[in-house]
Design a binder for these strands. Structure first.
Lengths: 139, 139
DNA sequence: CTGGATCCGGACTGATACTG
DNA sequence: CAGTATCAGTCCGGATCCAG
């Protein structure tokens, strides 16, 4: 961090060659990186329905592992999208709920879900057609 | 897929063996898997501005490799989100442009971008605060 | 109940070299 | 210019065991 002495530092310390950011691709990445991972969206959707405890989330999202649930909720918590309330009882009890920002994200996600449902068939069809064409071309 | 005798051909017959699918997490995965990978969004955003050739896309998206651009465009093409026009000239020339469906996706993406820009700071702040708190707790 | 720590296999990505 | 093929490095996700 001390810029005073670091004369050379042959490190590849140039991983921020971001350039474009001209119109639309500015902070998109931040959001999509999160939406990209399998579970974040599902957790958000589930929490959009109301307050949930750890176990409840786990049960509500078939296939998620404790590890992933922990990581996902932690990230959402860290980003201020989820509020985490701990009751120091025995056994422990932790409640998760969306913050206002989290709710707005849930809104976006629902928009995506709508789009997805709306174009799902079209995409599937296009894909099938494409595959068929490729097959045909090779023969 | 050549259905020889399919009398009815239940196109959408697949009831989607998904477990939950109760409200919102039906086909979301399909879309987000695509939005998740680093480049798809950027390509879509770029193509939303107009027709682009391969090289143009490559230049417009700093950091993308030919390989990734090829894969990304191919996937979008396959899904019917992008149209691919080949001019058998010398040298070859290939144009990419969004299909109507692709444009609607671009619309969604822009919505995400707006949301992202709107809450970017809030998230950054929350994250910083969170990190600080964690630090504090350990001391 | 909640969640941290570790091991490990698979998927995705990027760099490079080659073809038409 | 447009695209394919190969290879190696990285990271994510899942399973498991352990702790408060």
């Amino acid at each position: 961090m001390s810029a005073t002495n670091t004369a050379v530092t042959p490190q590849v310390a140039a991983p921020i060659p971001e350039g474009p950011c001209g119109d639309d691709d500015c902070g998109i990445r931040d959001v999509l990186d999160r939406l990209g991972d399998k579970w974040t969206v599902l957790v958000v959707v589930e929490l959009a329905k109301g307050v949930r405890r750890f176990r409840e989330l786990e049960r509500a999202i078939p296939g998620i592992s404790q590890r992933m649930l922990t990581l996902t909720t932690k990230r959402l918590w860290r980003d201020g999208l989820v509020e985490r309330t701990v009751y120091p009882t025995i056994p422990p009890q932790v409640e998760y709920r969306l913050t206002p920002v989290g709710h707005s994200l849930a809104g976006m996600v629902n928009g995506l879900a709508d789009w997805s449902r709306e174009h799902k068939d079209a995409i599937a069809t296009a894909r099938a057609t494409w595959d068929a064409d490729q097959e045909a071309d090779r023969l």
